[in-house]
Design a protein around this nucleic acid. Structure first.
Length: 572
DNA sequence: GCCGTTTTCGGCCCGACTGTTTTCAGTCG
């Protein structure tokens, strides 16, 4: 059973327990669910290695939960979970996914109306049966119907790249309002998560009425969830929830910190505050009644004895401990990139010419790009064979002669065949400046076979960069089953560079893989995977991803000048 | 149910807004 499936069981257990008014157990199960999902290694492998004892090395797993994981792995089932479901046979996950419906509501709905699923709830709400239940009125009934409607439309999370432009636009407009001193976006947007559930804005204003009124009247707003003088919540027409909080100036840093999260990072900060006899909330850091910090995030971290933690690191993945010791990495910065090593053109499936792509890259301040059109294995894109590659190389030579201010490298995105060989002959690869290799077929090979296939390809002396190493497409396609530890090890051994593909629905490598690669001393590049001139700006999302993976400037070789960069490849 | 610069018990982050109330529970972040 996959880690995510086991995590799901524990998450449901947490909901059932919450329904039963348990105080602390739900949090324990939730925590474990989260830990399992964050785990790179399959939990079944951890178990095989050292049994239930080894399972307890997973944070949050103690005696009781280790036994439960063992039972799941051994039998594929969990009695405790089955009993909870039997006792209250409701679709707890489906029902609580409806906005405004939590475990306590599910309990009432089940006990009074026998509702067990979303369909029944919708039926009951339509026929007016919800209204009149304890703590349920007409408004809740409507809210539930709206929530169900939203879920049917596939509500949920948005890839950062698809909503960041709108968020930046709203931020700019709010900033321009009278009586507004400052506006910043917080939350997962500020942490630059791959996908975001909602956007949180923070503002300083001594007269909140105006900004709140404007906020609910923006043309993008579809629905107002709630409006107060410090907090207003709306849903936009694209179904994204957006919150706006107005805070006093002296609390801005505390609020920014609090609303940037992550939740787990905040809990860790609060614990430290507690240890020091202080209290941290969104209004500041307090000793008794006295506020000792709060206007800026920097002063809060300082007062807690921590170095400043960049938002991208705030996931409670060791950054608090590192900040305490002053050992946070000097992260790569936005704007550090000098090159882009994966660019497709109209020679295959791109929309623009080589000249147009180079022109845009130059305009964005890049010093070099590699043209990496697909190769013949990917027939649907009109992938190049050796002959076509040669023609393209000649074309690039010509363009380079007339082009000033940017250098075009000759490259290709070469297919890794099912058996780990490449679909372009070595004699042709030898002539290229940059050889990217990638999996574009047979995605469903077993883990062992897929790992052997990719590592074999990486051993090719001409294979410089492994493009989008896991092949995932966010919200569309699972990564193929490959042992990333083995990939990272092979990258180190062979000098193969691993790519961070910055395309917003790829973001491949993931943050935790980046971190492992960095720790192993593997070289990285950040590429846009641009298929049109509009895509080159995606590099920014790759930098964000690299930062969330604790990568420093020196780990990412396309931060270097062209000559240095080329020296990092296998065949400079 | 977990965990330990308060270790084998006694804690476990904190506050805003809504709806349905008449003092607060539930939900959310």
């Amino acid at each position: 059973m996959r880690n995510s499936e086991i995590a799901q069981i524990f998450r449901e257990i947490a909901l059932y327990l919450e329904m039963q008014e348990e105080r602390f157990k739900p949090r324990a199960y939730e925590k474990v669910a989260y830990a399992l999902e964050a785990l790179e290694e399959p939990v079944t492998e951890i178990y095989q290695r050292g049994g239930a004892k080894e399972l307890r090395s997973i944070p949050g797993v103690g005696e009781a939960i280790a036994e439960k994981i063992e039972e799941i792995i051994k039998t594929g089932k969990l009695k405790y979970y089955d009993e909870l479901r039997k006792k209250t046979p409701v679709d707890i996950r489906g029902l609580t996914a409806i906005e405004g419906v939590g475990p306590k509501s599910v309990k009432v709905l089940y006990e009074k109306l026998g509702i067990t699923g979303v369909g029944e709830l919708e039926q009951a709400a339509r026929t007016g049966k919800i209204r009149g239940l304890p703590r349920f009125g007409e408004k809740m009934q409507q809210k539930i119907l709206k929530g169900i409607e939203f879920l049917k439309q596939g509500g949920g999370r948005f890839p950062l790249g698809s909503v960041l432009p709108l968020i930046a636009e709203i931020e700019k407009r709010l900033r321009g309002l009278p009586d507004v001193e400052a506006v910043t976006v917080a939350g997962s947007v500020r942490r630059r998560k791959e996908t975001i559930g909602d956007a949180d804005f923070l503002a300083i204003s001594s007269k909140p009425e105006g900004i709140m009124d404007y906020f609910i009247s923006m043309p993008e707003v579809m629905h107002v969830h709630g409006k107060g003088m410090t907090k207003t919540m709306v849903k936009l027409k694209n179904a994204m929830d957006v919150d706006l909080r107005v805070v006093p100036k002296e609390s801005f840093g505390a609020a920014l910190c609090y609303f940037t999260g992550s939740k787990d990072h905040n809990v860790a900060l609060r614990r430290i505050a507690q240890e020091k006899g202080l209290k941290l909330n969104e209004y500041g850091l307090f000793r008794g009644e006295k506020r000792i910090a709060g206007e800026t995030e920097e002063e809060i971290y300082q007062a807690l004895g921590l170095s400043y933690v960049p938002p991208e690191l705030r996931e409670n993945q060791g950054e608090v401990e590192a900040a305490r010791k002053g050992e946070l990495p000097a992260l790569i910065s936005y704007g550090d990139l000098r090159g882009d090593l994966q660019i497709q053109t109209a020679w295959t499936d791109g929309a623009n010419s080589i000249e147009e792509m180079a022109g845009e890259a130059k305009r964005l301040g890049l010093e070099y790009i590699a043209i990496t059109d697909h190769t013949k294995g990917l027939a649907m894109t009109g992938g190049s064979d050796e002959k076509k590659l040669l023609r393209q190389m000649e074309a690039i030579d010509k363009i380079n002669q007339s082009l000033k201010g940017i250098k075009i490298l000759k490259g290709a995105e070469v297919n890794i065949n099912k058996d780990g060989t490449l679909d372009i002959k070595d004699e042709a690869l030898k002539k290229l400046d940059v050889v990217g290799i990638a999996v574009h077929s047979h995605f469903n090979l077993p883990r062992k076979e897929m790992t052997e296939r990719v590592t074999k390809a990486m051993r090719n002396p001409h294979a410089d960069i492994l493009f989008h190493p896991t092949g995932r497409v966010i919200q569309k396609r699972e990564p193929y089953d490959v042992d990333m530890d083995a990939i990272i090890k092979t990258a180190k051994e062979t000098g193969t560079v691993l790519e961070i593909d910055a395309y917003p629905d790829r973001l491949d490598l993931k943050d935790e893989h980046i971190r492992k690669a960095v720790e192993a001393g593997v070289k990285l590049v950040i590429d846009s995977d641009a298929h049109s001139v509009n895509h080159i700006r995606f590099l920014e999302f790759g930098v964000a991803q690299a930062r969330r993976g604790w990568a420093r400037k020196k780990d990412v070789i396309n931060t270097r000048p062209l000559k240095d960069f080329l020296r990092c490849l296998k065949h400079p």
